[in-house]
Design a protein around this nucleic acid. Sequence first.
DNA 1: ACATGTTAGTGTAGACTATACACCATGTCA
DNA 2: TGACATGGTGTATAGTCTACACTAACATGT
Lengths: 221, 221
Amino acid sequence: MYSYDYPHPAVTTDVVIFSIRDNQLKLLLIKRGGNPYQGKWALPGGFVNPDESLDDGARRELREETGLSGVFLEQLYTFGNPERDPRERVITVAYYALISSDQISLCAATDAEAVGWFAMDEFSELAFDHEKIVAMAHERLAAKLDYSTLAFQFMPSEFTLTALQSVYEIILQEEIDKRNFRKWVLALEKIEETGEQSREGAHRPAKLYRQIKPGKVEIIK
Amino acid sequence: MYSYDYPHPAVTTDVVIFSIRDNQLKLLLIKRGGNPYQGKWALPGGFVNPDESLDDGARRELREETGLSGVFLEQLYTFGNPERDPRERVITVAYYALISSDQISLCAATDAEAVGWFAMDEFSELAFDHEKIVAMAHERLAAKLDYSTLAFQFMPSEFTLTALQSVYEIILQEEIDKRNFRKWVLALEKIEETGEQSREGAHRPAKLYRQIKPGKVEIIK
DNA sequence: ACATGTTAGTGTAGACTATACACCATGTCA
DNA sequence: TGACATGGTGTATAGTCTACACTAACATGT
């Protein structure tokens, strides 16, 4: 039992976990077992421990659901309307995380019953105000593509330019000219050729590239 | 006495209140009366009430310190390191606010003993992690000048282009070419001539402009 | 009334950036 | 060896950004 002179809200972290699967932007949702919103899908999240920072709390939630660590994670926004949880006052510090397509294969969560990856138009009526959180995360993601190397976080350690372009197209939901994209991304000088080729399928093999500073998200322009 | 099954952190809002005074970017600080950090300057802030949203809490803090309402206020970031307050776990949702130079004259706070406006290089050793909060607020402010009409929030209802330019120069800390600035800002089509002139001092009077949508911050480009 | 001082207000040329657009290259497989 | 599929490349144009200097209009003092 913990007592205070003044009322204290509960504080949680919720994480919007994005990844690219099947040529779609998807996010990880969890089916709620208990009330409220029992049976509804919700963002993974939970209470912040007394001795951990908010970042650490979000990272822990991420690890608990995916088994992954070392992924990109950034604070998004804090949601604290008094009525957002019917039980008690709960303030949630929302984060978003990006999982690359080689991390996703390591991701343990997928086989669990109550966990799933959903495309942005494959879910409806999330629990709490989670739809608002997801919408804001998607906006932030799209905005950051324009002025950072955020999209590289979705790529495996070696990737083709076509694969990278398709990540941009999926998130921004618009087609990009191949030649202009390549000029642009190479001019950034944030990726380099590995010297290897992909050689998949009945066609010309593609050069493989890697990030010069793997894992780093850099602001550009 | 309020009791919970699990430990709950205290949640506060702190507000970085910016204004332009004496051709400098200044912010409002409050001298702490009690421990910890007694006598140190700190951001205005306080506990979130159980029945108010985070935005409302921040707006209330702002009003309590300045007497002002209807000013621009936006959530900045949430700071929650376990050791940031020596008394108990305190998570603060930081906001920043912009006060225009006609609002500032209405601002009651200035005559109080323990309240003051400080230029960005006029203070040192703020209480808690408030220097970090201020630094992030300043970064956000400067970044937003590039892609929004945020700077207009510092302007009185009617203003000259020279005055507007000087706000940009003060915040960005760099000189801007007069002709290029005017071309740029007029091309935005977010301000219009009032038809009036300023006529101050021994020189040619300047045209006065106003925002087309007063109070609105718009994303540009 | 005229000279002085101070800020307001304006345009153009060149560099650079963004965009639109189509064909050949290189591999697999039948 | 031909069909198919994706990889890879350049150029011309429009648009944007940058640098740069002089005249206009007022107040003031002589």
